[in-house]
């Protein structure tokens, strides 16, 4: 891409990334949550790859990394559900942490943790799909 696109991307992509993190962390207070924030973060990464491009080896390493991130995130989600089984009243997805005051940033028990896990999972999944498409098109040339 041209240097105009690269410069604008360099300026904008950090802001998009921080916006995604904000959407995930405030998911229990404002509209948004893990799904929206994860998709926004994946969009930031996709923008980076589209603007800068990359050679094959780097892309393959990135794909392996994001695939591992996705697996770890879904594992964390499951582990939190299982921990609730042992700590709470023998029910999966039981909210065992203190609830706090409605409207505070640290409140709602385990819901922010679930939000973070789902956000990482969605971001890694969408970015992996995009990288698989790009690698396929590069290899089949």
């Amino acid at each position: 891409m041209t240097s105009i696109v690269k410069t604008v991307t360099r300026l904008v992509v950090g802001v998009i990334f921080i916006y995604g993190i904000y959407i995930i962390l405030h998911g229990h207070l404002t509209p948004g949550g893990g799904f929206a924030g994860g998709a926004i973060i994946a969009g930031a990464f996709i923008l980076l790859v589209l603007a800068y491009g990359s050679d094959m080896l780097k892309l393959k390493a990135k794909e392996a990394g994001s695939s591992v991130m996705e697996s770890l995130a879904i594992l964390a989600f499951l582990l939190m559900a299982v921990v609730a089984f042992f700590l709470g009243t023998k029910v999966f997805f039981h909210n065992y942490l203190p609830k706090g005051i409605i409207g505070d940033l640290i409140s709602a028990g385990v819901i922010p943790l679930y939000n973070i896990a789902v956000g990482i999972e969605v971001a890694a999944a969408l970015f992996t799909i995009f990288l698989a498409l790009v690698i396929f098109k590069e290899e089949s040339k």
Binding site: F35, V122, L126
Partner: peptide, 10 residues
């Protein structure tokens, strides 16, 4: 619908 949208993309 929130979950269904992301599944639809996949």
């Amino acid at each position: 619908v929130l979950t269904a949208i992301v599944i639809g993309l996949a």
